[in-house]
Simulated assay, not measured.
Amino acid sequence: MDFSKPRLFAKVDGHDFDFDEMNGLHFLELRTTAPQTRTSLQTNDFQDGSKQQGPILYGSRTVAADFYFEATDLYDFELASQEIWRRLYSRSLIELRWSRMPGIKMLVIAKPFETTRLNWGDMKFTVEFDMPAGYRQSLAKSDQMQFIYEDELAQIGMNLPNGEDLAYHFKQTRFKVYNPSDVVIDPYYQRHDLDIIIKGQGAPTITNLTNNYGIALNRALTANDTLIWNGVRPLLNGASCERATNHGHLQLEKGWNDISVTGLSNIDITFSFPFLYL
Rank of each mutant, 00 (worst) to 15 (best):
D122I: 03
Y213P: 00
N179C: 03
P35Q: 10
S142G: 08
L93S: 04
A80N: 08
T270C: 06
D151E: 12
Y277P: 00
P187Q: 11
E78F: 14
Q52F: 03
D143T: 11
Y149D: 08
D182W: 01
P6Q: 09
P35H: 08
M22E: 13
N162Y: 15
W85H: 13
L160W: 05
L160V: 06
F273A: 00
N211E: 02
E242N: 14
D186N: 09
S60H: 08
N266H: 15
D2S: 12
S90W: 06
N237C: 07
I259P: 00
F113R: 06
F27S: 01
S81M: 14
H192V: 02
S40E: 11
N230E: 14
L252K: 01
F9A: 10
F17A: 07
T205E: 11
M22S: 12
E114F: 12
E70F: 14
A223G: 11
G24N: 09
V127H: 07
D48K: 12
Q144L: 09
S90D: 08
S92L: 05
W98G: 01
R219N: 08
D18E: 12
E242Y: 15
L25M: 11
D48R: 14
A154L: 13
W256R: 04
D130P: 03
Q155F: 04
A71R: 02
A167G: 12
P187K: 02
A10E: 06
D16R: 12
R117I: 08
Y58G: 02
R91H: 13
D45G: 07
H249A: 03
P180L: 02
R243V: 13
P35M: 09
L236E: 05
R31L: 10
S60R: 05
L278N: 12
A110L: 03
Q201R: 11
A220M: 10
F125K: 04
G121H: 15
D143N: 15
